[in-house]
Write a protein that binds this DNA or RNA. Structure first.
Lengths: 334, 334
DNA sequence: GTATCCGGCGCAAACGTTTGCAGCTAACGT
DNA sequence: ACGTTAGCTGCAAACGTTTGCGCCGGATAC
């Protein structure tokens, strides 16, 4: 097996200079159509594939690679989001460098470093929290960055695609209230996360709008993981008088909450109604089918990627802020 | 903002040659401890980060990047697997280039090209089918490749980590038989996939072992997607006499099958027992809790990555073939 | 004293591209 | 006939590393 043919080999075989070959590939500069045809034929014959590494080294960026840094791909929300990003990347012939940072600042920093060291064309990520200095640094160093799902507080010219979490939570809780529930427990996200905050606001706003005051003793904050769903739901069910409904602020905590409820033999929705943020694969066939508000994760991924490509093309355009609406899917758990 | 410091800048500031700096970084060659200390201090002061692209270009490979090409990250099985790969990659300071090929040969080829053009250190993937020439070519061109989940038929020295699908299916169906089921419907994988074949074999073997003959009219082949679960389960339920149990060969078809069953108001397991291959997030809290055989996806990802790193270190070692055992998780759906 | 060796370090050539600049040819205007 | 221009192409210098080879000086051996 001979070494893969490179650009100089192509040039030699085609009896032209490397510049000519390079320019035919990139459609840059003036090359006569005849020469182009010829070069292309030689490339085909040799099965030439440009070396992306060399290209990136020389041209720094502009080289068909973007980075996606997410908390955890095992969370279906982020899996959908990642898929959205990847689909539009593929359509633009870009590859995606995917990393899980596990809400760990050190890991996030590590991967950010990797991204700039790889001189990717751009980065998509949900920042670990609202004032994530590390992300800000790389954005200010000139790498196109778009935030998705979570905002960066000093929104200094950084594109953002987020879910309208407040609206989603509002509609969810409003739905519960319309169904007659007055004691609605909240299993919220982390108090210091923008999504957690927004969902809490929606919960409160729905109460206010209905002329009710949210029962403070029924509000708890978790960490978006199953364990806290398990624990907090148990806590809430122990309050007297107990809640008649639970609004669980993400899919993983929902799993934990359901464990508690099932293990206590409570019947849904007769004894306790339940409504979740984030859809889940089996939610529609659950018994009862789970009513949820579904954030458009896939669409958010797509939107973020499209935004990123726009910014890569024109780095000086004004920052965009998109807010996608979640959808209330009424099934049978309320 | 000044340009990121590079190796020659470090060398200049440290009053040594670039070779010395490079060698202190890579611990290669003889450099006095005193010089090393000095160089390291200067690097820290400047906040020097080596450029991975240049490094890869020069050294070709050995540069902390591996590729992972999977069908679809939205499938929890592959999400777990990807997470396994990424965890051991991170521990070795490697980044992962992740791609979804959607069982599409053209996409797979595209991403394989990207991998070699990026000169990754190695590639992990489930080949699209048993004799995947594209993968073979890449492997033979010298790039370390390890197959995971699916085998390559000409097993010509390529490492493999697979799940013991036959064994898993065998245990699943044996469990059903022990529970008294005699008419067990099979919603199988694609007939031309190695995993589909193996699971079919397990299904048949369990019958044989029990002195039964598998009912041919209850065997159907799907495509591992929800739709075929929906359709095939409907077909099977229409056979007379109907099956008393269904063995569904992957998670997505399981979702479809459940839709059919729920929509017909059939009670599980009284009217129809159901057992699935692959676990699902809500399976444990489903009512009834779903009995499944859980393939160790995360562990397979870890094993594959570890194998890959071994091969990267010693390219000439003999090919390994690991077979991981799935676990039958008996819950309440049989 | 000389020969040998070795630890420590630098020189400069790669790796495979892109790209600014310059050169060359033919056509064109005057 | 001569300058100008436009179209096309080549030269060679980057991009930031790694690494083979060779140089230097001091220690060791004899």
């Amino acid at each position: 097996m001979q070494p893969a043919p490179n650009l100089v080999e192509v040039a030699r075989r085609a009896r032209v200079s490397t510049s000519t070959v390079s320019r035919t590939i990139n459609q840059t500069g003036k090359i006569s159509l005849k020469t182009q045809e010829h070069v292309r034929r030689v490339m085909r014959e040799l099965g030439y594939k440009p070396n992306r590494v060399a290209r990136r080294l020389r041209a720094g960026g502009k080289c068909h690679l973007i980075g996606l840094i997410i908390p955890n791909i095992q969370n279906p929300f982020f899996a959908d989001l990642a898929r959205g990003v990847e689909d539009v990347a593929y359509r633009n012939n870009f590859a995606v460098l995917l990393c899980n940072y596990d809400e760990d600042a050190a890991k996030e920093q590590f991967y950010l470093d990797v991204m700039v060291a790889e001189s990717v064309d751009g980065i998509i990520l949900p920042p670990i929290h609202e004032n994530d200095a590390a992300v800000l640094r790389v954005a200010q160093s000139g790498v196109p960055v778009v935030c998705v799902d979570r905002a960066l507080k000093p929104a200094s010219g950084i594109d953002l695609v987020e879910i309208d979490n407040e609206r989603g939570a509002f509609e969810a809780v409003e739905h519960l209230i319309q169904r007659g529930h007055r004691r609605i427990g909240l299993i919220g996200g982390p108090a210091d996360s923008s999504t957690g905050q927004a969902r809490l606001q929606g919960y409160l706003a729905a109460h206010t709008r209905a002329g009710l005051t949210a029962p403070a003793e029924l509000v708890r904050f978790g960490d978006y993981k199953p364990e806290s769903g398990r624990i907090l739901s148990a806590e809430l069910l122990g309050v007297t008088p107990p809640p008649t409904a639970l609004f669980v602020c993400n899919n993983l905590m929902m799993i934990g909450a359901l464990e508690t409820i099932i293990s206590r033999g409570l019947s849904i929705p007769r004894q306790i109604a339940i409504l979740g943020f984030d859809d889940l694969p089996l939610a529609a066939v659950f018994s009862p089918p789970l009513t949820v508000v579904r954030p458009p994760a896939y669409e958010a991924g797509r939107a973020a990627a499209e935004l990123l490509f726009k910014r890569i093309e024109q780095p000086d355009r004004a920052a965009t802020h998109a807010k996608l609406l979640p959808e209330l899917i009424v099934r049978g758990s309320c």
